[in-house]
Design a binder for these strands. Structure first.
Length: 491
RNA sequence: GGCCCCAUGGUCAAGAGGCCUAAGACACCGCCCUUUCACGGCGGUAACCCGGGUUCGAAUCCCGGUGGGGUCACCA
């Protein structure tokens, strides 16, 4: 298909903020593609925007990537033969190539000021034309340059875009896309401070790093002809391009902060599981063609292919993410969910800083009792109070139930049974059998038994299964609550 | 506005000319299970943007329109 010996792809974020949902999907697609075809995945940092880039963002992005379960064969923080992998550490390389273009007359220095350019841009915009540089400095003589530099002007380097040409891109997901060169205008490849621009650095790096497939978001499609021109100027082999459609917000515009949580870390902090996030992201723009919705990372690796990537943009559907995440919460080992739940419980004050083993056992029992309710872990605090704090019996419905004349009989019966038990905690099976026998033993209907019990134990008429509640509470706490309830009801 | 991309239910999407009386999933609604609330099970409502072609036959191919989106920086 192309001239490259091996499949090699990259994710090249600019460290100007946390990892965005869209960026995460691009990273995932690249990673899946590499894993599927036994290629290499590399991560490179594009930090040529000095004002907005930061090490904090870089760290943040990398940690989000790792959290999602992605790893890379080469690149930032793991090294490799084609480093460095931070563009600001490769400046001499770009200058060398830019000078080559200058020498060959394929690029030139431009001394136009930003003010002049801004005015021109406005004029073109108003006239309804494509905004582009008109080539004012294209034919400056060396003497002109010298004079302008003496005036103190610092030049940028512009690439000389050939006139009258048509650039055709064969995009893997989009098919043939063509652009007229006349609409592009000579663009800047090196800024006046000597830092290369994206459109130039990306090509130099992708070439030097032998990138065979450029998989990225559709917003880059209109940049592609500029990059193609650079490949051609150096006579470098062209990679395949695959432009994946954007992820949209509810209002169908490009996803941004206004649409709610947009960064991976925000979802992580709300208690979304990485495998749910990856599964969901994979389904945004790709489908297996089969009737399967739940995919492990491994399954994704073995099934992913670019020809099943959809062309149309996808709206970010929080409902579906929630469903998937809930699914993973229900099906993961309890120990894991319990561990993940700890920070949330601590934040709400239910747990101390370093919960001991005994506490963790209780947390597991709590998780067993409530995890079916959860879409994401932060919601756990909506359901667990009943396990950690004795009820206040302020709920009118529960008080009503406690005032039933059969209630004391039920509560006393259970108190007796609990008191007679040899172990301090019963397990789920023991709780179930105790509960099951109750109605018959007391000669009462289930409603008359379970509702009073629930109300006495929790102060509420709805909540987790009693057979989950009893083991988590422990016998003495249960007895205490039942006795308090008898008092409260005035029996 | 110029250039570029896109167009199947509310959302994600299957569909690559007859198999479509158009999958599946999320959401929604109903029933069942549960003597609570969820979970779960079963069922239901709901879509090929419009107009022209091409063809015996079009959701699928072509053209036009409309709509939506992206992009037009010394940002990536």
């Amino acid at each position: 298909m192309n001239d490259f010996k091996e499949i090699k792809v990259r994710f090249a974020p600019s460290p100007t903020g946390p990892l965005h949902i869209g960026g995460a999907r691009s990273a995932l697609f690249n990673w899946l593609f590499a894993r599927r075809y036994n290629g290499k995945f590399i991560v490179r940092i594009e930090d040529t925007d000095l004002d907005r880039s930061s090490r904090e963002s870089e760290e943040n992005i990398l940690s989000s990537l790792r959290w999602l379960g992605l790893d890379w064969d080469e690149g930032i923080s793991v090294g490799g033969a084609n480093g460095p992998y931070r563009q600001t550490e490769r400046l001499d390389i770009y200058i060398r190539y830019a000078n080559q273009l200058l020498e060959r007359g394929l690029a030139y220095k431009c001394y136009c000021s930003e003010e002049e350019l801004a005015a021109q841009r406005e004029q073109q915009l108003a006239a309804g034309e494509m905004v582009r540089y008109t080539g004012k400095c294209r034919d400056l003589t060396p003497e002109d340059c010298e004079r302008l530099e003496k005036e103190g002007r610092k030049p940028v380097i512009r690439f000389k875009v050939p006139l009258g040409r048509n650039i055709i891109i064969n995009d893997i997901v989009r098919g043939e896309v063509s652009f007229e060169c006349d609409g592009i205008g000579d663009y800047i490849i090196v800024k006046s401070d000597g830092i290369p621009t994206y459109n130039f650095a990306v090509v130099v790096d992708d070439h030097l790093m032998s990138i065979s497939h450029v998989i990225r978001a559709e917003e880059h499609l209109s940049n592609t002809p500029r990059q193609v021109l650079i490949y051609e100027a150096f006579n470098w082999p062209m990679p395949e391009f695959a432009h994946v459609s954007l992820i949209l917000g509810k209002d169908r515009s490009k996803m941004s902060k206004r649409h709610g949580a947009t960064s991976i870390e925000q979802y992580r902090d709300l208690g979304y599981l990485p495998e749910a996030m990856a599964n969901f992201l994979a389904l945004l723009g790709w489908s297996s063609g089969k009737e399967q919705e739940v995919f492990s990372l491994e399954e994704l690796c073995s099934q992913f292919s670019l020809d099943r990537v959809v062309k149309s943009p996808a709206v970010f559907d929080l409902d579906k993410l929630n469903w998937l995440n809930g699914h993973y919460i229900k099906t993961s080992p309890v120990e894991r969910i319990a561990k993940l739940a700890v920070p949330f419980l601590q934040k709400a004050g239910y747990l101390s800083e370093n919960p001991d083993d005994k506490t963790m056992e209780k947390v597991q029992l709590v998780v067993v009792a409530v995890r079916d309710y959860l879409e994401y872990l932060a919601q756990i605090n909506d359901y667990v109070d009943v396990f950690f704090n004795d009820p206040e019996y302020s709920d009118p419905e529960a008080r009503q139930v406690l005032s039933w004349e059969e209630t004391p009989t039920v509560l006393r019966a259970v108190i007796d049974k609990l008191a007679a038990m040899t172990s301090a905690h019963m397990d789920e099976a023991a709780a179930k059998s105790l509960l099951k026998k109750l109605p018959k033993d007391l000669g009462l209907g289930g409603k008359k038994v379970y509702l009073p019990l629930r109300s006495a134990l929790t102060g509420k008429t709805r909540g987790p299964e009693l057979y989950h509640l009893l083991p988590a509470l422990g016998n003495s706490a249960a007895i205490r609550r039942l006795e308090t309830a008898l008092d409260v009801a005035g029996h």
